[in-house]
Design a protein around this nucleic acid. Structure first.
Lengths: 311, 311
DNA sequence: ACGGGCCGCTGTATCGATTTAGCGCAGGAT
DNA sequence: ATCCTGCGCTAAATCGATACAGCGGCCCGT
């Protein structure tokens, strides 16, 4: 299985099959423009299998100029479900192309990211935490824009439930990212398209007291607002928490809807109505884009309302 | 700043400072056992700065046998606060040693991890998701055992509040990991040390109905139980949710305490009393262990009760 | 006066894979 | 008979950094 105590190299496979390393490389990579006899090919493949040969990623990366790693930088995991499916899609597409996906959560430290880049030399980096810039556009396979498209789904549900004055609950400025910023814009765009006036934005931060104040301000200054759309589930849940402390019920006093179903949405009291997004296709697209392939058709992936108590 | 359109290499620095690449390497790495004249050293350093030279991680990794990356595999992020501080500690310690930390959340796919290992060739891999094995012991800088130690803090709080019959809420078997399994054992150990009988374990899964059943079973078959300790905040919150649906209040009917403060614990209704753990020192230790350094003194990091409504 | 050792530095091999140039041979075209 | 082409394969260079052996020159001890 192994040569000495180390992993088998190309050279070992070459020695075992009685050809040169070059030939082994040609065989295993199916290098186009190279003709290899059937018998040789089989001998090499057998030897590679026998020795359990796996290409040495680092050596390859040195030669090729970059590793076959794609680095995905995210803020955090465990929040929404869409990111999970995005990652799953991206991963499976990348693996089919011989690449691996590394997901790294960033605590907003550019210097640290630099270090990782220097050490890994990824083929591509997809940074979902960066402010939305022209450079990134499209390179995320539609993640940012695609997520935003589902604001329509979210608002439409509220409208169908009879609401026409709607506020938008947004996370604190400290958590800004490409995804959130674009989604905020998209929510306003969706509102306009649905004939609503500009949504009043309510910042719901980590601090319970501040959140409470934001909600009571809203109730006082805009009593005609009957529903709140959260930019993400987390924000919607904080909204519900603040409302509960103000003795406001959902949906009676204010309907609340989340976005991008989180694990807590089902067990909160009241349970949170939200939007579930299957982002796998965006993940696949992002993978193809990052490898320079044709992204294929633009499709908005299925999104659906998870109907619960709060709206 | 750059040579051509590519990043400067050692050779470029050598050419710019009129010495050999070997010398440049000696200077920049402060290779022990090599004497370099002060003037040469300065010339080389100046050239390196001038050209904005940064070592090529891949080339180095090829030569050294592994990259200067340490890979930390976790289940998910955004759950507890201890993991965050653990990562911060590990990161800063590693960076001081010229290494970078990559944190990758695993969706339980060993084949995918294999791909990453082949592509990155990390110096070390620290897998917190793996079942606790002898091989891992200690390599986590005390993470697993250290976390477990705080079960004492948790149970002691309940005892001080007058409880003596305590149940342990555990996550579903599907989420088992080194951390959770060790913590479960440690909770029982802590119970024994505090003179409690073996804690009855209640599995609180993702499914609300099942969780409800588990709680009502507990109430029916062990009415003497007056408090529940959660193996993690997530589990404790699910417990509170199930209790609320059964019209059981915390702490009146059953006191509930969490473990490893999560972001939701403060905004749940009722707010969750829990244990906050500063795991940064474990992160530092884990970093040192993974680089083969002396881990230093074993210290139990500070943990404290975050006293809220539920217990 | 001669051997040994240290200083300050260089040349070269090496890590493992890929790529380019090219070699010997067979078969077909001219 | 000669030239050309394509097949099947190999030798050597390359990617960038590091490790090891070693080279001249100088100083020191005996």
């Amino acid at each position: 299985m192994q040569v000495g105590d180390r992993r088998a190299t190309l050279k070992d496979v070459a020695a075992a099959s009685g050809v040169s390393p070059t030939t082994v490389s040609f065989v295993l990579n199916r290098t186009p423009g190279q003709t290899i006899s059937e018998t040789t090919r089989r001998r090499v493949e057998a030897a590679a299998r026998e020795l359990d040969y796996a290409p040495h990623g680092t050596a390859r990366a040195l030669r090729e100029g970059s590793s076959r790693i794609v680095l995905l930088l995210v803020e955090e995991l465990g929040i929404g479900s869409a990111l999970r499916s995005f990652i799953a899609g991206m991963r499976s597409e990348l693996e089919a192309e011989g690449c691996a996906l590394v997901v790294h959560p960033v605590g907003s430290t550019p210097a640290t990211v630099e270090r990782i880049l220097a050490g890994v030399r990824p083929r591509t980096v997809l940074d979902l935490t960066r402010p939305y810039s022209l450079g990134t556009e499209g390179s995320d396979g539609g993640w940012v824009d695609g997520m935003a498209a589902h604001s329509l789904t979210q608002l439409r549900h509220l409208i169908q439930a009879g609401h026409s004055r709607i506020a938008l609950a947004i996370p604190p400025r400290t958590r800004q990212s490409a995804t959130l910023e674009a989604r905020r814009g998209a929510a306003q765009l969706a509102a306009a398209r649905l004939g609503l006036e500009t949504l009043r934005e309510v910042e719901i931060g980590e601090e319970p007291a501040a959140a409470r104040r934001a909600i009571s301000d809203l109730a006082r200054t805009s009593p005609q607002v009957t529903a709140i759309a959260g930019l993400e589930d987390e924000t919607a849940l904080r909204t519900l928490a603040a409302m509960a402390e103000l003795d406001l019920g959902a949906p009676e006093d204010l309907a609340v809807i989340g976005f991008d179903e989180s694990r807590h949405s089902a067990i909160w009291r009241p349970t949170l109505t939200t939007v579930r997004i299957e982002a796998e296709i965006f993940g696949r697209r992002a993978a193809r884009v990052s490898l320079g392939r044709d992204p294929g058709e633009w499709t908005i992936p299925p999104s659906s309302i998870v109907r619960r108590e709060s709206a």
